[in-house]
Design a protein around this nucleic acid. Structure first.
Lengths: 329, 329
DNA sequence: GGTTTGGCGTGAATCGTTTAACTCGGCGGA
DNA sequence: TCCGCCGAGTTAAACGATTCACGCCAAACC
C-alpha cells in the first residue's frame, strides 16, 4: 500500500527493453520477437504492473469513459436512465461514471467539475441550475441533456410532458371525474409542462384544475401533502401527482384516512416506475420512457463522439398512457 | 468544440507571467501584487480557462474523488448505499463516482479498471467475482467492501444476515406459522447466511424449512417464482424472500392468484426499501441498514485516506426487524 | 551603509504515458 | 554487389499541471 506502484519505466528496465516497446506491447501495436514478448509479458505479471489511465489519457486526449449526472439515485426514473445509458455504453465498449447531484444541495458544481474532467462526454439532467447548464455548454466536450430544457443550441432528449399530462387528463375526464387536482413539484422544469397539459385536457371538458404542491418529489412528500389536498377548500375526485413516488405516497395516506381509491378519488402519476403495477390498487401512470431516454441520450452522445455531426435540438419521445386500477371506475 | 481548450500555459502567456505563477494563483498558495492578480484573474475569465484535473492528479497523486461500485442501481438497497456514501463524501469535500456493474454480465473488469484509475479509494459490493476481489486487493489503493465477504485482510462493512433471518424466522414462528419457506437467490453471497439463520430459527421450533429460489432478485423474479412455490410439493404458510423486491413481486402474484396475504400466507423480505411500508398489506421486512452501511463504508475509507490506520476486518451492523401487516395474524 | 530578511516571481524537473521520427540489420531483387 | 525496403526496437518530445530551488528587489535591521 505504501510503495509506489510500478510504472511502465520499471517494466522496461526489468525486461531490458525500452519504454516505447512496453507501451506498444501493451497496446498491441506491433509484432515482437519471441524473446521480447515473453520477457515483457512475464515482467508485467511479476511486477504487478497496472496501466495509469490518467497518464494515458493525458496524451491521447480520450478516456473511453462517459459521465452521467442525475439528481437522485433513489428515484427509479433516474435509475432507469442510468440503466439505459449504461447498457448502450457498455455495448460500445465505453464505461459510464455516474454522479448523484443530490438535488438542491449546491454540490453540483464540484461534482460536475470532477466528473467532466474525467470523461469524453456527458449526459446531464436538465434539472440543474441555469449557471451549470451554461458552464457545461462551453466545456469543450459534448453534452446531452435529458428532461425538459427550453434552450437554443443544446442537445436534449425528452418525453413530451404536455402530451403525457393531457393524455392522463382525458383519461380521467373520460372516466367521469369532475374535480381533478394536480399535485405538482414546483421546483422541477417538467412541472409547468405537465400542469399545462393537464389544465388543457381538463379545460376541454369545461372543468377547472385544482392545484397543490409537494415539498419533495418523493413517497414522503406525497404522503405529507395528502390531507391538506383532500380536505382543502375543494375536495378532488381525481389526483394527478408529479410522479409515481408522490402518487404512491398520496394514495397510501388517502387509504389510511379511509378514502377509497379509486372509488372516492382516482390517483395517477408519471414515469411508470417498476413497482407501480404492484401497488394495491395498481397505479395508473404514464410511461415516460425513462430507460429509452437513457439509451437515446447515450446513442446520441456516442454518435457525436464518433464524428457523426448531429444538429443540436430536441429529440422527443411519445409518452404512453398506462391505465390501471387506481383510476378505474 | 473543435479548438483545443486553453491551458495554464496559454493563460501565463496572455497574462505575461510564468506558468508557476498561474499555478500558484489557481491554488491560492501565495499573495500577489495587485497588477498580477488582476491580470491573471481576467485572463482566466476571458480565455475560459479550465483546470485539467488529470494533469493535476498526475503530479499530486491524489484526486479528491472516490469510487463506488454497485450491482444494480434499480435495487433500492444499492441506491441507499449510494446515498449514504455520497452524503458522507460530500460532507468531507470528496466527490463520489458511481458505476453500475450490471450483475452477471462480466463487464466488471473494465468498469472497475476505469473507475479505480480515477479515484483515491473505492467502495465495492462484495458480490463481485472472486478474481475481481483479489485484483482490487492489491490495487495499491484502499478498498472497502460492503456485503458479506468471508475473507482475511480486507475491510468490510456488513449487516448480520444470519441474525436478520433468524429474527424474521422467530417472528413468523411466534405468529404460529408452521410451514415456512425461503425464497432465495443462490448467486448472492448473502444468500447462504440468510438461509442458515432462517433454518436455525425454524429448527428451534421443531420445524423444517422449505426452500425455493428465484432466477433474478427483482420484482419480476419474485412474481415468476410465486406459483411454483405456492403450488409445489408442500404449500407454505409463510414465505421469506431474498429481498423486498422479490417479496413484493411474490406477494402481488399470490394475491392475483386469490391467496390472502397474510391470512393464508405471510410474506416478508429483507432491506426495508422505502416503498415496503406503502404496500397493501404493508410488507414485513428486516432493515439491513443500507444507508448506514454506505455511510460507514465511506467514513472508514476517509479515515484510511487521512492516515488513520485501520485494522482490516468486518464492521457489523445489527439488523432491525420491522413487523408489518404482511405477516400479522 | 552593508547585510539580512521576506515577499513576489521564475525556471526547470517531474508525474506516467503515447507516438512521431529515427536507427539498424537482414533480405530480396536487379 | 548494391540498393531499397521492411520491420523490430529506440530516442525524445509531447500532454498539462505542480513544486522545488532559486533570483531579485525593497524594506528592515544593526
Amino acid at each position: 500500500m505504501t510503495k509506489r506502484p510500478p510504472t511502465i519505466k520499471d517494466v522496461a528496465a526489468a525486461a531490458g527493453v525500452s519504454i516505447a516497446t512496453v507501451s506498444k506491447f501493451i497496446n498491441g501495436q506491433q509484432r515482437f520477437s519471441p524473446g521480447v514478448e515473453a520477457r515483457v509479458t512475464e515482467t508485467i505479471a511479476t511486477l504487478g504492473y497496472r496501466l495509469n489511465q490518467q497518464a494515458r489519457s493525458m496524451v491521447t486526449g480520450r478516456t473511453r469513459t462517459l459521465g452521467l449526472a442525475i439528481l437522485d439515485v433513489r428515484n427509479p426514473h433516474f435509475a432507469n436512465i442510468v440503466k439505459g445509458a449504461n447498457r448502450v455504453a457498455l455495448a460500445h465498449d465505453y464505461n459510464l461514471l455516474v454522479v448523484d447531484l443530490e438535488e438542491q444541495t449546491s454540490h453540483e458544481r464540484h461534482l460536475l467539475e470532477a466528473l467532466s474532467g474525467r470523461v469524453d462526454g456527458l449526459i446531464v439532467s436538465s434539472r440543474v441550475p441555469d449557471e451549470a447548464i451554461s458552464w457545461l455548454s462551453d466545456l469543450g466536450k459534448p453534452v446531452i441533456f435529458f428532461g425538459n430544457l427550453q434552450r437554443e443550441g443544446v442537445h436534449c432528449v425528452r418525453t413530451d410532458g404536455h402530451r403525457a399530462a393531457s393524455m392522463l387528463g382525458r383519461h380521467l375526464v373520460g372516466n367521469g371525474r369532475k374535480k381533478i387536482a394536480y399535485l405538482g413539484f414546483t421546483k422541477a422544469r417538467w412541472n409547468a409542462e405537465r400542469e399545462a397539459g393537464l389544465r388543457e385536457a381538463v379545460a376541454e371538458a369545461g372543468l377547472s384544475l385544482i392545484t397543490h404542491s409537494v415539498d419533495w418529489p418523493t413517497l414522503d412528500g406525497g404522503q405529507q401533502a395528502c390531507s391538506s389536498l383532500l380536505f382543502g377548500a375543494e375536495r378532488p375526485d381525481a389526483v394527478v401527482a408529479y410522479n409515481d413516488l408522490v402518487a404512491i405516497g398520496f394514495m397510501h395516506e388517502a387509504q389510511a384516512l379511509g378514502v377509497n381509491v379509486p372509488v372516492d378519488v382516482a390517483v395517477a402519476g408519471f414515469d411508470d416506475i417498476p413497482v407501480a403495477r404492484f401497488m394495491q390498487p395498481a397505479l395508473t401512470t404514464v410511461n415516460m420512457r425513462s430507460e429509452e431516454q437513457g439509451e437515446a441520450a447515450m446513442t446520441r452522445l456516442l454518435a457525436i463522439l464518433s464524428g457523426k455531426a448531429e444538429a443540436s435540438g430536441d429529440q422527443l419521445f411519445e409518452p404512453r398512457l398506462v391505465p390501471r386500477a387506481s383510476t378505474a371506475r
